[in-house]
Design a protein around this nucleic acid. Structure first.
Lengths: 336, 336
DNA sequence: CAATCTTGTACAAACGTTTGTGCAAATTTT
DNA sequence: AAAATTTGCACAAACGTTTGTACAAGATTG
């Protein structure tokens, strides 16, 4: 069974290619194609198992019905969740999503982006993995709508949707302080990323306001390894912190592994809070308190932004920060 | 900056479109294009920021450099892991992957498949979500290589790569039995899926061989909810099982939630083992024993299969089962 | 120096759509 | 019944590539 084309249908029905195309692309009324002809075309299409060739159509129209999503890692449940949401959301609007993970590597990110522009993507949702933005800006300058989520660039006119990272970190820190903690170590992620900067700032501000001048920030990557290593190092200090604040779920996992190896109990020996929620957090040996991001909302708004930009082409960039919520579980001990 | 086409390069260099195309598609030698011309073309391409239009190329060649991956849910870390592996693996071969999740819904699966064939995919890797295979077989009959992973259809000539589910379940059950358990409840997933059937069979066989005729199998879905509900029900029985065997990580999570709500401790009150591994399992209140599937190997072999099929077109279907490994943690108590 | 071979390049068709335009036939209006 | 309008459809160009073929100029051979 060879692939049937519009031409085959034209032959079968005795109508012209033009007419067939118009019926099949839903422009029958617009071009006043007769009811009977419409029927014939549709029937033949069904009979021949016609599937339109998007490549040909796109070549003609320049529209690919394809959107791109680039995230740092599908293996991170936080991003996988976003990917899933966006994927199903876009499907509703008849777009196909090509997802790709940059593996937290700017070079891969650039390569992927190139690949994707070669496929005439109509829009891009990206969680940029570094502090380089030129290649992303370039896409936007080519007239392709771009939305950053989670991580973004503050002073650029690229729209973004993210969590209010400052507030999240600020409140989490306040909460720790409220429970008597003053020696708190923050294990951060990629230093140049905006969310990380804001989280660190939130942490720092809260500490300073409480009069704690000894501010401890370590780490440099949103990875399991980073969390693991930094925690290992931490634990070798003569004076250990009473609480740890990890800036991502991956860091938290690495941290927990190290704690476990050193036989340190949460929250008795040390308190722990992290950015990012995950279902598993509820079942950990100590259920883990976290600052949860509104993943679903972020995804949906991102899609809405993108689609409206694709349709209207108005370039009023919007930048949105959603409120995080703090989920308190059992990983924080009141001391003093 | 408008998109530059091959024509622009032709004009800029004074060469013909043909020549430009041949240089850019790496067929310079084959068609004996002079060194100088090659240089000129490449230079101009760089200067114009030329990005080839895949749609046009594909229209001409019929090759899309696009492969499709359909999984039941990106939110399931097990599948997200597979997606990630396959994505990065395929990128190495210059293929783009379009991923989509069927949300465990056959109708969506069919729709997606249609969308994908419209995009001239060159191959398909799928974790089928139901017991319907006609639409998948049809793809293969159209000459598009297909590989099933994880879930598959036994008596069809569609190649598959999966875990030896029977053995995994058999050994896990044996292990439970070896630890003195006889009242074991198995919470299964989608009953019609092959892995589920084989896992159930492994469970049943092991039970029977041990002389335990009272075989308890409940549930009907690879979901959190199913695990939760079935566990809730289980716990209301007068005589509770001493061990639970969940057939997926999602089911396990639901199960754990129910156990926790009822204040039942693993492994003191009840033992637990599950199919599928996950990093978090190591940090749970009780670290969870599991039958781990060789995700990475499965993904890589699937890709290898697919690519060799695309290249050779030989249709000798291969069907591979990889050995699972049992990861023993602390969730199983020796009784009696 | 004619015949042959090699080298380097260009022409033009084709892939499957979409769409501006044109033009009969049917219908309505005058 | 002629003129004007509406209805229904087709022609042909275009999108950006790839590729079979053709062909001129230079190099090699006899």
């Amino acid at each position: 069974m060879q692939k049937a084309s519009i031409t085959d249908i034209a032959e079968m029905t005795g109508l012209s290619i033009t007419t067939v195309s118009r019926v099949l692309s839903g422009k029958a009324k617009q071009y006043r194609i007769g009811k009977q002809s419409q029927e014939k075309v549709r029937e033949a299409a069904k009979k021949l198992h016609y599937v339109p060739n998007h490549f040909a159509a796109n070549l003609r129209t320049g529209k690919s019905s394809t959107l791109a999503l680039i995230i740092p890692s599908l293996n991170n449940p936080f991003f996988a969740g976003i990917a899933s949401e966006i994927n199903t959301e876009l499907r509703k609007f008849n777009y196909i999503t090509i997802i790709s993970d940059s593996d937290e590597n700017v070079e891969i990110e650039k390569m992927e982006l190139l690949q994707m522009t070669a496929r005439n993507i109509e829009g891009l949702i990206i969680v940029p993995c570094g502090d380089q933005w030129e290649h992303i800006k370039e896409i936007q300058d080519q007239g392709i709508p771009v939305v950053c989520i989670d991580r973004y660039f503050e002073d650029l006119d690229i729209p973004y949707i993210s969590t209010d990272n400052y507030e999240g970190a600020y409140k989490a820190t306040q909460y720790l302080i409220g429970n008597g903690h003053s020696r708190i170590t923050c294990i951060q992620g990629v230093q140049t990323s905006t969310p990380n900067r804001l989280r660190v700032k939130g942490f720092t501000d809260a500490m300073k306001e409480a009069g704690h001048e000894d501010i401890n920030i370590v780490g440099d990557d949103f990875t399991f390894q980073n969390g693991y290593l930094e925690t290992k190092l931490l634990l070798q200090q003569k004076q250990r912190p009473t609480a740890i604040f990890t800036l991502s779920n991956t860091i938290a996992m690495g941290c927990m592994k190290a704690l476990k190896e050193e036989n340190i109990h949460v929250p008795n020996d040390i308190s722990l809070i992290t950015f990012d929620d995950h279902p598993y957090l509820d079942y950990l040996s100590t259920t883990l308190s976290c600052i949860a991001q509104p993943v679903s909302d972020i995804s949906k708004i991102a899609v809405k932004f993108l689609l409206s930009k694709i349709q209207n082409k108005d370039i009023n960039t919007s930048q949105v920060l959603l409120k995080p919520s703090m989920k308190l579980r059992d990983s924080i001990r009141k001391i003093n």
